[in-house]
Design a protein around this nucleic acid. Structure first.
Length: 409
DNA sequence: CGAGATTCATGTGAAGTATACCTTTAGGCTTAA
DNA sequence: AAGCCTAAAGGTATACTTCACATGAATCTCGTA
């Protein structure tokens, strides 16, 4: 019986006319042929990178700007163009894009270099090799032929904050050791203040050139959305007011165009699923909810067990407090007590408080909690921890954590 | 009453340890001449 | 004797622990007005 009704469902699904014409145009990885409001930046980047086509090493480039201001997109666009021209004229230019934030991929010096070498076709074990050895493998792989490597390091601030600036120093110094190949680095950072924290020598070698991306304003975002919609949706499938609402939402988030696009795409998907004819304002609200929820669920699920356990302790404290309607803030010590109590239940070996302190700081970075170091005077110093996710999601996240950790309640 | 000392609970940095994994090397076994 | 396999030795990165010291405002202490 199930098969019959399901068959009907699929049939009607097929019969239903999609409101998307080309959904790809709404995905984050999509690079449009026209990038609105970023001509200047793209020209700037293009000018800086142009010498590469004559196999002269372009200046290292450092790009600042908040999330969703088109940094990654502009760089991808420019480099794609370069590599196309390079291909036509047989110029050996290689472009490599690496996101330094990805856990377990490129978040330490070793892993970053290993990842680069892997992209050059080498196999590098996850651990065991000396870091210099990995550098050597990388040099040799690169120096095999005359070529130019443009290395794009996205979210480089995350990497340097965690592991120091030696990596950049080493990378910028490589050129003098290479005989045939050359390498030039493009660093992308979300953190505007980031440059203040690094060694001035490193900074000057990394940012021989700089480009600053300022946020889009609401009108520009509307414009961007309209252009994307023309490609992505069939005509007339977007209700009035939807685009202004999306862009208003994004402008609230310091002009983050990526969020606006995401929002519209998810709204479209929702509209399709509920068999509505066009995307309406109510879909936007639903989409906003959904995106936030999925982001959080995803982050929570991909954390290591110990992180989840700490998070579990934090959330159960916060939950308790909500039930009892108490106002008292929670501190590292409280979290550690609960954590220790629950550890055996979760089949985990308890970790020291020292480590928990670091984990709490990392969870703060992930945006799951707010943890501020405060002094309570006579009563010592600690981190004061607050919820950083919408409280209506707490129960759900709590449930997921319990499931992941194999705990009931 | 107020300046300075004290205090607490934990932050934080550095160094050490356990684990998991890598390459190299030496020994032992097999094989072919 | 040469070739191949295995296991031990020696090395590394990473996550965590241990040790020791740093922090900083509420609270206490004590000299002074």
């Amino acid at each position: 019986m199930a098969s019959k009704s399901l068959g009907g469902f699929f049939k009607s699904f097929l019969a239903q006319e999609s409101i998307f014409a080309n959904k790809k145009a709404m995905q984050v990885s999509f690079v449009p042929d026209q990038i609105a409001h970023r001509d200047e930046h793209i020209n700037q980047i293009a000018e800086i990178l142009a010498p590469s086509l004559k196999l002269e090493k372009p200046s290292n480039l450092f790009i600042y700007g908040k999330t969703g201001t088109g940094k990654t997109l502009s760089v991808k666009y420019t480099t794609e163009q370069i590599s196309e021209v390079a291909k036509e004229n047989d110029i050996p230019i290689k472009i490599m894009y690496i996101n330094c934030k990805l856990k377990k991929v490129a978040d330490t010096e070793y892993r970053l270099i290993a990842e680069i070498a892997r992209n050059l076709g080498k196999t590098i074990p996850a651990t065991g090799l000396p870091t210099d050895e990995v550098y050597n493998i990388f040099y040799q792989a690169l120096d095999e032929s005359e070529q130019l490597l443009i290395l794009v390091l996205d979210e480089i601030d995350q990497l340097i904050k965690k592991t120091g600036d030696e990596i950049i120093y080493n990378l910028t110094r490589i050129n003098s050791e290479l005989k045939q190949a050359q390498i030039s680095i493009i660093g992308i950072s979300n953190d505007l203040m980031f440059a203040n924290h690094i060694d001035p020598r490193v900074k000057s070698s990394l940012s021989e050139e700089e480009v600053l991306f300022h946020p889009y304003n609401a009108l520009q975002i509307q414009d961007i959305l309209r252009k994307r919609c023309e490609q992505a949706f069939k005509p007339g499938k977007i209700d009035d007011g939807v685009i202004p609402k999306c862009s208003a939402y994004a402008a609230r988030e310091h002009g983050d165009a990526r969020r606006a696009i995401d929002l519209l795409r998810v709204a479209g998907e929702l509209a399709e699923r509920t068999k509505d004819e066009k995307v309406m304002i109510k879909h936007i609200d639903l989409a906003e909810e959904k995106i936030e929820r999925e982001r959080i669920v995803d982050v929570v699920k991909t954390q290591p067990k110990q992180f989840q356990a700490v998070l579990f302790a934090v959330f159960s404290l916060l939950n308790n407090q909500k039930v009892k309607n108490k106002k008292r803030a929670i501190f590292t010590g409280d979290v550690y007590d609960i954590y220790k109590e629950r550890c055996s239940e979760m089949g985990l070996r308890p970790i020291t408080q020292r480590r928990i302190s670091d984990i709490i700081a990392e969870l703060d970075m992930l945006g799951l909690i707010n943890a501020k170091v405060i002094s309570k005077g006579r009563f010592g110093r600690t981190r004061e921890i607050h919820l950083a996710i919408p409280s209506h999601l707490l129960d759900k996240v709590f449930l997921i954590l319990a499931q992941e950790l194999g705990v009931d309640n």
